[in-house]
Design a protein around this nucleic acid. Structure first.
Length: 618
DNA sequence: ACACTCACG
DNA sequence: ACGTACGTGAGTGTA
């Protein structure tokens, strides 16, 4: 038996790599006694991250405790697979760092269903994110195994991923190809594969103690595990791609980008993404560019270019000046190029052999707990035009249903800050209740106009985001004096918001600059941006309502229908003949009473494509 | 690596 | 003392 020894926190730990079927017996003996000693750390090494692609390989499965790790070479097949499968099936409790990934790998490539493994899992990444969700760049520890191990377990814990990248280079491989092609017997590969589970095993008790010390409820930890599993379920299902349409769209966008880039080139702009070239060319045409970026460069963003092209924010002609042809060409080329590379091409790159895309859903991406979706970033598809969302389809015989919370952050603000007159409004009105018009009428009287509504909607956003008068004026384009009066009137109508903000800031300062949400989520506040506490409280409460809605939806039998969480919305694919029933059930799953404030939702039943919810049906 | 830009809620 | 828009993911250009 090959056994590598390494030092972790002053102890010598062992990484065992069985090379023959006989040597697997020692592993099985160890695994059979595992349950008596507590949960076993589990990890896998694979050919890459694109779990659903053709040719994807599971290479090793690792099991371990604080002192011993076993690296089982799944790729060798036969008895190696049987041994790994026996442990995967029989061990009662596992510790995994970032479980969603391994759940999906083992579900798809080892035949261990997500439904079977997830309930037996405790995820150290989830635990860490509940202690401090910040990334290292934001001043936190981070939620990666490496920084967490270095912080909690052993300051000199190796950077297993980073060091492996160096090994890959030494073998003439890249970071991308290394995991697929490094020889299965490579000593560093095996040592690090084993160390990862040993570090996970040692990390968990540290995180558990810290969670207990800080009073983070076990209920919250369990809640996040449920949500993580539901998100993994959605990821496994994926969304059906209309490949033919997407390929045509890709070609059309490519033509568009090229056509307008050629026009821009006539004015000396070689690359439409070079702000320096655009600024120089526009200045040469006699345009005056007055706006600056944070670092003092000339600003030539979409708002600046639209004004020069005589267009409003929805690209409609204003008729206020002669359109600058370069500005318009740059706008059109950039948009087509971005939509093509960021969306259409990523769809085609990530689609699996059965025509589905499986975006990564990070169930706890932001400090507030908000989720993040990547590869492709399906939470950020253009909504002004249906062409990109048109690429994604409900399943055969299904239609898309999108259920949104109604003005959830304003409702949450009313509930958390106990805003009397806001609560009265929400309580008296139903799902169609318009908080912004209500506010306008509260302040202006019955004669409040649509313009007043807009003004106080801006003021409301200012409150939720923590913005001030000048930021609001900049954002809305209204005069500062007008905004100032609106904000003052807003504060007079809803005085509880300022008081809650002050209270939350005071509490955070008294507890190490951490604000704790209604659910017990810990959110570190930046000392110089303490005003953001209002947004953190509202955003995290809204996120936790969505999380509970996912759990409610599963309980109502809607798990298989769900496709994507989008902050205040659940997108689903449901049988066309039962769409109305599903819509009602989703609305029910997304209905709450939060401290006396009704949280309500509205389902929209679309057609076959996601784009159908954004315009004409297809 | 960082700046800038742009897509979303 | 004062005022600060919040949270993401992703592509391209530049140094």
């Amino acid at each position: 038996m090959l056994t590598y020894r390494h030092s972790v926190a002053g102890d010598t730990v062992r990484v065992h790599v069985p090379a023959t079927p006989e040597e697997l017996d020692a592993f099985l003996d160890w695994a059979r006694q595992a349950d008596g000693r507590g949960p076993i750390a589990l990890d896998s090494e694979t050919s890459g991250l694109d779990v659903f692609s053709d040719g994807y390989r599971l290479r090793t499965v690792q099991f371990g405790d604080a002192h011993d790790a076993w690296v089982i070479h799944w790729e060798r097949g036969g008895d190696f697979r049987s041994a790994a499968l026996e442990a995967l099936t029989k061990v009662r409790r596992f510790l995994i760092h970032n479980a969603a990934f391994d759940w999906l790998v083992l579900d798809r490539h080892a035949g261990i269903p997500l439904e079977d493994l997830a309930p037996r899992t405790r995820d150290t990444r989830v635990m860490a994110a509940l202690l401090d969700p910040r990334q290292p760049q934001e001043g936190g520890i981070g939620v990666g195994l490496k920084p967490l191990s270095a912080y909690y377990v052993d300051r000199s814990a190796p950077d297993t991923q980073g060091d492996l990248t160096a090994v890959f280079r030494g073998l003439g491989l890249t970071k991308a190809s290394g995991f697929a092609r490094i020889p299965l017997d490579h000593p560093v590969y095996n040592l690090y594969a084993g160390l990862d589970v040993i570090l996970t095993a040692r990390l968990e008790p540290c995180l558990a103690a810290e969670l207990a010390r800080l009073g983070v409820r076990e209920r919250l930890v369990d809640y996040e595990h449920q949500i993580s599993r539901i998100c993994a379920h959605m990821q496994r299902r994926g969304l059906l791609l209309d490949e033919e349409f997407t390929r045509e769209l890709d070609a059309d966008l490519s033509d568009d980008a090229e056509t307008y880039a050629e026009i821009a080139a006539r004015y000396g702009v070689e690359s439409v993404n070079s702000t320096r070239q655009i600024a120089e060319a526009l200045t040469g045409m006699g345009e005056r560019l007055t706006e600056q970026t944070a670092s003092g460069a000339v600003k030539v963003d979409k708002a600046v270019l639209l004004a020069l092209a005589d267009m409003d924010l929805s690209w409609k002609r204003l008729g206020t000046r002669t359109p600058n042809p370069l500005a318009e060409a740059v706008l059109r080329s950039k948009r087509a190029g971005k939509w093509r590379t960021t969306y259409a091409q990523t769809f085609l790159e990530t689609v699996d052999s059965s025509g589905r895309v499986h975006p990564f859903i990070n169930s706890m991406a932001a400090r507030t707990g908000r989720m993040g979706v990547t590869r492709p970033a399906l939470q950020t598809l253009p909504s002004s035009d249906q062409m990109i969302r048109r690429c994604l389809l409900a399943d055969e015989g299904h239609v898309m249903v999108s259920t949104d919370f109604a003005a959830v952050e304003m409702r949450v603000l009313a509930a958390l800050a106990d805003v009397r007159r806001m609560k009265e409004g929400f309580q008296s009105g139903g799902g169609e209740f318009d908080i912004h018009m209500y506010t306008a009428q509260l302040i202006r009287g019955e004669g409040a106009t649509e313009k007043d509504r807009k003004l106080f909607k801006g003021a409301g956003f200012g409150k939720v985001y923590g913005g001030g008068v000048s930021a609001l004026a900049r954002q809305t384009g209204a005069a500062e004096e007008e905004i100032r009066r609106a904000v003052n009137a807003y504060d007079a109508a809803f005085p509880e918001i300022r008081r809650a903000s002050a209270r939350w800031q005071r509490e955070a300062r008294a507890t190490g600059m951490v604000t704790v949400s209604a659910t017990g989520r810990r959110m570190p506040l930046d000392r110089d941006r303490a005003y953001a506490v209002v947004n953190y409280q509202c955003q995290s409460a809204a996120r936790d309502l969505l999380g509970q809605a996912l759990i409610n939806a599963e309980a109502a039998g809607l798990l298989d229908a769900m496709r994507l969480p989008i902050h205040d919305e659940i997108l689903a694919s449901v049988p066309a003949s039962e769409a109305a029933d599903y819509a009602r059930e989703f609305e029910k799953a997304m209905t709450f009473n939060l401290f006396g404030v009704p949280i309500v939702s509205k389902a929209d039943v679309g057609g076959r494509s996601w784009g159908s919810l954004y315009g004409a049906d297809f």
